[in-house]
Amino acid sequence: MNKKAGPLFYVFLAVFVFLVMFPFLWMLTSSIKPIGELFGADAFNPFTSNPTLANYESVFVNYPFVKYLWNSFVVASITTIYTVFVASFAAYAIARLKFKGKTLILGLVLSVSMFPQIATISPIYIFLKNLGLTNSYLGLIIPYTTFTLPLSIWILVTFFRKIPFDLEEAAKIDGASLMQTFWRVILPLAIPGIFTTAILVFIAAWNEFLFALTINTDDAYKTVPVGIAMFEGQFTIPWGEITAATVIVTVPLVIMVLLFQRRIVSGLTSGAVKE
């Protein structure tokens, strides 16, 4: 379907983009308002004549926000590296080797990825508590495996299947062992797919809320989503700081999305679309 896009189409696009982005734009303009203009008549005025960075300053001065960012970064990075590593072996085997029961294994992986987190949380919480792992990085990395590992296997299988099968035959004829074929021939070709998977896994781990909320309750180990959600005071909601914090976490995501959009889309739709 290669129809030409008319001017009306661009109007529609502009409206669509505006509607989707509106909440972010509003957060951005609110975040630079002085506190008084967040309430009352000025609250509905999109622009302020007294822009200030006071809210941003407060986020870093009055809250351990840098700590939250660091915690999220550590947990999401370690989770990503280790799950993608384990998953790439499994996905390679499922996609390219012949053995009995691999459809069953893939089915298992898919069903586990659909497990509601709430169904696993009570044993995991009690287990981590008994081991003294609540309020630690490991306390989140372990439960995050429940959704990141199936996700990575699922996406990687699709990528591994796309690599031409003749390559293995050729490697075999040249006398390469199975592991040599994997490391020297297949893996280099799968790097883009692995990178894509890593981006998606990182985002999933970065955004996780339920485990982070229940397991790491100490400020020193809170992740960003929980940290921001807990900004709320007992009596007042510090909207100024919340808008600023939202902008701070959104900006890197916007940059990441702009840089890797093609990869993210191919990762999201892999496995969901039969080509």
């Binding site: 379907m1 939202t246 959009q261």
Partner: peptide, 29 residues
């Protein structure tokens, strides 16, 4: 949007941003 048009990348990025931010943050927003 299943057609060729100018600014596809921008639209795709726009589409991805709500998906990419943490649900907890969007809920607060």
């Amino acid at each position: 949007i299943n057609k060729a048009f100018f600014g596809r990348g921008l639209v795709r990025a726009t589409i991805l941003i709500p998906w990419a931010i943490p649900t907890a943050v969007s809920a607060l927003m």
